[in-house]
Every structure is written in C-alpha cells, then in structure tokens.
C-alpha cells in the first residue's frame, strides 16, 4: 500500500522524543544519587544502588544507539544532525559522570567526615539534581518549541531555564570552594588518600553542573 510511505516518512519514534527519553533516564539517575550519598554517609552498603545506576546507564546507551541509527537512516529533524549528536554526547556524558560517582563511592569508605561537610555535600547534590531538572525541562520543551514554530515566547522560556542552570553553577562553585577549604583544613586529621578520594568525588559532582550548563548552552544555541 502507498500508505506505507506515510508511515515511513513520519516515524512513530523521533530523535527528539528519544532525546527526551534519554534525558528522563538522566533525571532518574540524578535523583538516585541523593539516597546513594545518604547511604554512603550512613555507612550502608551501596553496592546494589550502584548496580542499578549502571543498569540504567546501559538503558540510556541503548537509546543513544537508537538515535544514532535513526539519524544515519535519513531521519531528519529541524536541527542539524551534528548538533543533535553533539548534544546527545554531552547529555550521555552526564549519565556517565553520575555512574562514575556511584562506582567511585563503592570503592572506598572515607573516615572522619563530620556533619558540616556531609550537609555541604548533600547541598551540592541537591544543586546538581536541580540543574539536571532544568536541563530535562529544556529538552522536554523542545517538542513544544517545534510545534509552535520556534515562537519567541517559548524560546524565552528555554533561555530562562538556561539562566537558572547558570545560577546553580555559580552556587555550586561557591559550595566547591567551601568544601575545598574543609578538605585542606583536614589534611592533618584525615588520611591524605581519603582526602584525595573525597576531593575527586566532589569534583565529579561539580563538573556535572558545569557540563549541564554546557549542554543547556548548546541546546539554547541550536534552538535559534
């Protein structure tokens, strides 16, 4: 039937829809980091949590491959293929970074962390989750942006979300300085290897927000 060409021309699944699904996995993983971190601070076993995050990371990879396959099969969107692939790469690397945090925490237990630093790290985690929430909102809104033909009202909304991520990134920078100061103040009390380990973990979280900002910036740029 010639109707088959309509079905082929308008694929039921679109690269944008899959990018949103990919972002949903990112958001889910970001939310899993908080209980994982709490469990770590409470000296609980985090192995199962880490395994679940790795499983979801593999699911996200599947979506990533599906998007790449689609784009190589002449499925076109209002955006350049390169822009979508660059965006996908950044979004996927955020998921990888969360997985890195989970894996890293499963390797070592840092002794001597006080309530002050635990609160600071949890505050940092909250900010990271918030930045991912805004990013997920941005990609979710892309469908609407296309639907309404890139109307300036919707582009402004997207730009506002980007500004919010930028603000979070600034707060995270401040937090990282406070956490850094605490780490160096403990150089005589805590095992140096533990301190390096702890610092590296915190830096991964800080880099996630940096990267979330870069990802949002790219999205904002190709929406114009």
């Amino acid at each position: 039937m010639k109707s088959a060409f309509f079905i082929r021309m308008f694929p039921k699944e679109t690269p944008i829809q899959l990018l949103i699904e990919h972002a949903a996995v990112l958001e889910e993983i970001s939310r899993l980091i908080k209980p994982l971190m709490e469990a770590y601070f409470n000296n609980e076993d985090i192995h199962e949590r880490m395994k679940f995050i790795s499983k979801r990371e593999s699911d996200a990879d599947e979506i990533k491959f599906q998007i790449r396959r689609m784009l190589s099969q002449s499925v076109r969107t209002p955006f350049a293929v390169k822009d979508i692939l660059d965006y996908l790469h950044l979004q996927d690397s955020l998921i990888d970074r969360f997985e890195d945090v989970a894996k890293k925490l499963s390797l070592n237990k840092v002794e001597g962390l006080d309530d002050y630093i635990k609160d600071k790290v949890m505050e940092l985690v909250d900010q990271v989750i918030q930045s991912i929430d805004y990013l997920e909102d941005m990609i979710r809104e892309v469908r609407k942006v296309i639907s309404y033909s890139f109307a300036s009202k919707l582009l402004k909304k997207e730009a506002n979300n980007y500004v919010k991520i930028e603000d979070i990134e600034n707060r995270v920078d401040d937090l990282s300085i406070e956490i850094g100061k605490w780490i160096y103040s403990k150089k005589k009390e805590i095992n140096p290897l533990d301190l390096v380990f702890f610092r590296e973990t915190v830096l991964i979280l800080v880099h996630i927000t940096d990267r979330a900002e870069n990802t949002a910036e790219l999205l904002k740029a190709f929406l114009k």
């Binding site: 060409f5 099969q73 076109r76 296309i146």
Partner: peptide, 27 residues
C-alpha cells in the same frame, strides 16, 4: 503521492516537523 511528499518536505524545510524520513525521496 509524489506531490504530497513534496509538500511534506516543504513543511519540513520550514522547520515545521519533528522528524521526517527522507529515505522515501530516494525511493
């Protein structure tokens, strides 16, 4: 059929469609 494909591509060129499979053009 071919005219409707042309129209679909036209709207796609105007950034109006979330996704179109241009493979059909070759066919």
């Amino acid at each position: 059929s071919h005219t409707v494909v042309g129209s679909i591509v036209g709207v796609g060129m105007a950034r109006g469609l979330e996704a179109i499979n241009l493979d059909i053009i070759k066919k």
